[in-house]
Nucleic acid binder design. Structure first.
Length: 560
DNA sequence: ACATGAACTTAGTACATGCTGT
DNA sequence: ACAGCATGTACTAAGTTCATGT
């Protein structure tokens, strides 16, 4: 067993390490990171950590052309006559400035074929673009790029109550774009009549192209797809850091519990904040410029108005009620009983403050992370989210899965475990527009089934009475039949209501974010192997590509 | 110490695609 | 074959983190 594990690990390592490395080069002239002479050895080591590629070649980003109006006099025909397009078809044609050269003979043929032809054409064009611009060569490997198109201009919406809502996002021009590739590679050509802002060759970063976006003046990058080796290796590193936390977490917890009683206010605040980050999986919560973005908060930026203290609630003592908008303006609402010292501290932190004042006024994400670095190498606030998410999945899977269950039941258990994590991380989604309808359909089915059960029960009673009266073999077999029918129906009803519960519980919970970013895929893969569940039932094709590193690495005995 | 900026991960939504029961 | 719903993908906004500049 041990040998198998070792071999697997070795295989995974080769997969990831196929990228040949060479000693750190001096970096790029002009790049800020290397402008200044290097400082301490620690800084040197930090730089060693960064990506170092030898060769990077790509075609640069794709610029979609501005939309052109449909030329005059061009329209669609059917039955030999010009066709008045439906509004939507017309929009599609105008919007993209393209047309079909088909002639449709009848209205039916038009209806039937227009959108199919249209879609086929779009798909072919997309595929062509993907092939031309969608890949790069990184150290001899053809790697898929994540976003190879520049973002089209449009009205900025933003999420939540965004102060910049409605502003025009400018078109990205080649003159805005910085290209990053090897000096000795085929340098991408800018579109005809245009020039790049700059071409550089910085092998300590992973982006291929970058531009400054016109709404927030932030930089947008063209980077690799999650299925690439480079991203895979980073994900692996991330989970390894989280796994390392397991060895430190007990001590860290007792440390912050002790710090609840510290003499120093700063330490107390840090200890309570860290407790929330650990227990409730809150985000770090950086300061934001108001007027630049929606008013949202995380742990360190919580304000007095976001928490309420209840000496007693829901039959528990010392209950804290959280109500605030987090990332993407998603509401976080939770009532949690906390330890008495935490409660007392919160009372202290809130004393003599206005609702708009910071709850943790002596704490910033920088100071918190600095403290975390001292506790464990590479530890930051977000590692706790990864750690607790993965640990929760592993625990829930252990608690919920039964070896003798059917595959369907096992998958249900997996989804339940996944859901527990999503709820912990507060991953929400809008209720889909069709939810009510499909739920109603399911409810109708349940209702029908219930009636059938009632009917079957009545018939069983009747059969029983008849059997009592007649006592012959025929009535006995009728009685048995009715009993079996009732059992079957009851089973079906139970399954339906399980489905309904599952659906209802999943209504506002998004499983995908935790699945893709927080759950160590090796846990899921090991679970699949242990319980003979095909991995395809858990991970779709792209997800399997994204987690290729884990598929090569994890045996059924993997422990997070 | 604090502000700014660069680089990278994480996030939900809209739309496309695929699947399933009729 | 096809409607109707579930699932998957593309897109890009919104976070975190770390380093540098002031």
């Amino acid at each position: 067993m041990r040998v198998v594990r070792l071999l697997r690990l070795r295989a995974a390592l080769t997969l990831l390490r196929e990228v040949p490395r060479r000693p750190a080069s001096r970096g790029v002239p002009g790049s800020r990171r290397t402008q200044k002479g290097s400082g301490t050895r620690w800084e040197e080591e930090k730089r060693e950590d960064r990506v170092k590629w030898r060769q990077l070649e790509h075609k640069g980003p794709y610029f979609a052309p501005p939309y052109e109006p449909l030329p005059d006099g061009v329209c669609f025909f059917y039955d030999g006559k010009p066709m008045r397009l439906s509004v939507k078809a017309e929009e599609v044609a105008t919007f993209y400035g393209r047309m079909l050269d088909h002639e449709y003979t009848t209205k039916e043929v038009f209806r039937k074929n227009f959108f199919n032809d249209w879609r086929k054409k779009l798909k072919e064009e997309a595929e062509k673009l993907q092939q031309e611009f969608g890949y790069c060569i990184l150290d001899g490997h053809r790697e898929k790029i994540g976003n190879f198109k520049t973002e089209p201009p449009g009205l900025f919406r933003g999420r939540g109550d965004h102060p910049k809502m409605g502003m025009l996002k400018r078109r990205v021009m080649p003159e805005d774009v910085v290209i990053n590739c090897s000096r000795d590679s085929k340098i991408p050509k800018p579109p005809a009549g245009h020039q790049w802002k700059e071409v550089r060759s910085d092998n300590t970063v992973t982006w291929l192209a970058a531009w400054t976006e016109s709404i927030q003046n932030s930089i947008k990058y063209v980077m690799l797809n999650p299925c690439s080796k480079l991203k895979g290796e980073k994900a692996w590193q991330k989970f390894e850091t989280a796994r390392r936390l397991r060895g430190f977490v007990d001590e860290i917890r007792s440390q912050y519990q002790a710090d609840w009683k510290s003499q120093e206010m700063k330490t107390r605040q840090r200890a309570v904040a860290l407790y929330f980050i650990d227990k409730l999986a809150l985000r770090a919560g950086n300061e934001k410029d108001d007027g630049e973005a929606a008013d949202t908060v995380g742990c360190c930026s919580l304000r007095v108005e976001h928490v309420q203290l209840h000496p007693e609630a829901d039959g528990c003592q010392h209950v804290v009620e959280f109500d605030f908008l987090g990332k993407d303006s998603i509401r976080y609402y939770n009532r949690v009983p906390v330890e008495k010292p935490v409660y007392k501290n919160l009372q202290l932190f809130m004393k003599n403050k206005d609702p708009q004042d910071d709850l943790f006024d002596r704490l910033t994400t920088t100071s918190l992370n600095k403290h975390l670095h001292e506790l464990m190498d590479g530890l930051t606030a977000k590692v706790f989210r990864t750690y607790n998410a993965s640990v929760t999945l592993q625990e829930q899977l252990r608690a919920l899965t039964r070896a003798e269950d059917s595959i369907a039941a096992k998958i249900l258990s997996y989804n339940r475990a996944n859901r527990a994590v999503a709820i912990l991380c507060n991953h929400q989604r809008a209720t889909s527009s069709t939810f009510e309808k499909s739920m109603q359909n399911l409810q109708t089915k349940i209702q029908v089934k219930k009636e059938q059960v009632a009917e079957a029960r009545a018939e069983l009673r009747k059969a029983r009475a008849e059997h009592k009266a007649q006592g012959d073999g025929k009535s006995r077999s009728v009685l048995e039949k009715k009993r079996r029918l009732l059992e079957k129906l009851q089973e079906q009803l139970a399954w339906l209501s399980v489905q309904a519960t599952d659906k209802e519980e999943n209504k506002q919970v998004a499983l995908s974010t935790s699945k893709l970013n927080y759950l160590d895929p090796r846990i899921s893969i090991a679970w699949c192997k242990r319980f003979r569940v095909p991995v395809e039932k858990i991970y779709s094709k792209t997800q399997r590509e994204r987690f290729a590193w884990a598929l090569a690495m994890a045996g059924e005995d993997f422990e997070f």
